[in-house]
Simulated scan of single mutants.
Amino acid sequence: MKLVVMSDSHSDINTIQAIRTRETDADAWFHCGDSELAVDADILQGIEVVQGNCDWSATFPESVVAEVCEQKVLMVHGHQHGVKESLMQLKYAAEQVNASIVLFGHSHLYGAELQDKVLYVNPGSTLLPRGGRVATYAVIEYSDSPRVTFRNPDSGEAVEKVIFTTS
């Protein structure tokens, strides 16, 4: 299984297009909010998208639950789940829907954690990274255990790889 995840692109359609052109073999596409685009924007067709705190004129859903290759994915933006402080609210939300993968944005900081067999991934921001980091999106590959690669949206080169082992 291969998931492509982006967030916080803030009206930058060129970067979304570059990622879509590069990652053609994805099983599913996700945008964790703050696209600042219209719900019917052509560039977002075929991508699951949630409402971010900067998506003022759009009416995306606040959360998405999707089944991809036998994995249940929960996606939110994160501003309503306190993600800048803790993953605890996301943990409760994941338990409610029995999610094995949780995707979120909002902080503009990329990262991945595996807690109690649930994978939490923030792809960072494709346009406005924080904390001295570079712009990123995430590619999640899952066979026996998850592997998350954070990639530069312009070049596609790996910024960081995180490989988890599950027992």
Rank of each mutant, 00 (worst) to 15 (best):
M1W: 05
K2C: 03
K2S: 09
L3Y: 10
L3E: 07
D8W: 10
D8E: 08
S9N: 15
H10P: 05
D12W: 03
T15P: 03
I16S: 11
I16K: 09
Q17Y: 10
A18Q: 15
T21A: 12
R22G: 04
R22C: 06
W29G: 07
G33E: 08
E36K: 03
E36T: 00
A38S: 15
V39M: 04
A41T: 11
I43V: 15
Q45F: 09
I47T: 15
Q51L: 12
N53H: 12
N53K: 10
D55Q: 10
D55A: 06
D55P: 07
S57Q: 15
A58F: 09
F60W: 01
V64P: 01
V64K: 14
V64F: 06
E67C: 02
E67N: 13
V68E: 02
C69Y: 10
V73W: 13
H77N: 14
G78W: 13
G78E: 08
H81M: 14
H81N: 14
G82A: 11
G82Y: 05
V83A: 08
K84I: 05
S86P: 05
L87E: 05
K91H: 09
A93F: 12
E95A: 15
V97E: 06
F104N: 07
H106L: 06
L109K: 13
G111S: 07
G111R: 09
A112D: 11
L114C: 10
Q115S: 05
Q115L: 11
V118P: 00
V118N: 01
V118R: 00
Y120C: 01
V121T: 00
P123Y: 00
G124F: 10
L127D: 09
R130N: 03
R130Y: 02
R130S: 02
R130C: 02
G131D: 07
G131Q: 00
A135P: 11
Y137D: 08
E141H: 07
S145Q: 14
P146E: 03
T149Y: 04
R151A: 14
S155M: 04
A158F: 00
A158N: 01
V159R: 00
E160F: 04
E160P: 03
V162D: 04
I163Y: 07
F164L: 05
F164R: 07
T165Q: 14
T165S: 14
